[in-house]
């Protein structure tokens, strides 16, 4: 009985998760699909070809990837020392620091976005890539700091001391010991930042002011335009990179994580 229930829940979850994707797939490759037919009468790759021949879409894709990559890199660089300190040290004001780092997740994004918009207009950053990247850091940092500090809570600094007394310089210890020990966590935190930046619409709109066109912006205007095939194809394009990245790193991540777990 329990087995059957388990299987049913599993099946239901898969269905809920995969059905929309399948639907997108069918839509994206359909040329003609009229009411009584269960499947499209003509299949075609035309919507995709159209998408890839459109410089606006290709530009959007590259912009999105570029921004998300830079944002995840910056997130990691900023979050690393903060997370290390929060995870390893006990000091007065630690709770307050936590609260401060988590504020962006509590304050409505619209409020943050409007405020930043005014500030960035004054700083002449509105409508620029730098401005958009900086604004994306606001929602990504809490997640990267949280992920990394969890990592450092189980981290043993003596690995570093061991390397230093064996003659390694601080630099070498950082790159050859610290970074390698926390590497799987860095990837996870980086992925979080990438995904959050990737799906960011509001901040890109407010700060980019229509000059920085990422995929979500294009998707939004396509949805209001109304060709289902184009929307479906664009949606698949939007989903592809994150799914690809996760699929590629999951295996390696698992192995690496297990190797370190065995040590502890």
């Amino acid at each position: 009985m329990k087995k059957i229930l388990n299987a049913a829940i599993r099946f239901f979850l898969y269905l809920v998760l995969i059905a929309p994707l399948l639907l997108f797939g069918v839509y994206a490759f359909s040329e003609r699909w009229f009411f009584p037919d269960v499947l499209p009468s003509t299949w075609s790759t035309a919507p995709f070809l159209r998408l890839f021949s459109d410089p606006k879409t290709v530009g959007g894709l590259l912009t999105s990837i570029g921004i998300a990559l830079v944002v995840s890199l910056f997130s990691l660089i900023v979050a690393f020392p903060a997370a290390r300190t929060l995870g390893l040290r006990r000091f007065p004001g630690r709770q307050f620091a936590w609260l401060l780092f988590f504020l962006p997740t509590v304050v409505p994004p619209l409020a943050v976005g409007m405020g930043m918009n005014i500030l960035f207009l004054r700083l002449d950053l509105a409508g620029s890539f730098v401005g958009v990247i900086l604004s994306h850091l606001v929602p990504t940092l809490p997640y990267t700091i949280f992920t990394l500090s969890g990592l450092f809570a189980n981290y043993d600094e003596n690995y570093e001391y061991q390397a230093i007394v064996l003659g390694a310089s601080k630099r070498r210890t950082f790159f050859n010991v610290t970074l390698r020990l926390v590497f799987p966590g860095l990837i996870v935190a980086g992925l979080f930042a990438f995904l959050i930046s990737w799906s960011q619409y509001l901040l890109t709109l407010l700060i980019g002011g229509g000059k920085v066109l990422t995929l979500p912006m294009l998707l939004f205007s396509a949805v209001s335009g109304g060709n289902p095939s184009t929307i479906a194809a664009l949606s698949l394009l939007f989903i592809a990179p994150p799914v690809l990245v996760i699929a590629l790193t999951a295996r390696q991540l698992n192995q690496h994580g297990n190797a370190i777990k065995e040590q502890y």
Binding site: N158, A259, E262
Partner: peptide
């Protein structure tokens, strides 16, 4: 220094 734990680099 040699510690109580071996602290061999797992990687």
């Amino acid at each position: 220094l040699m510690f109580q734990k071996a602290y061999l680099f797992p990687f």
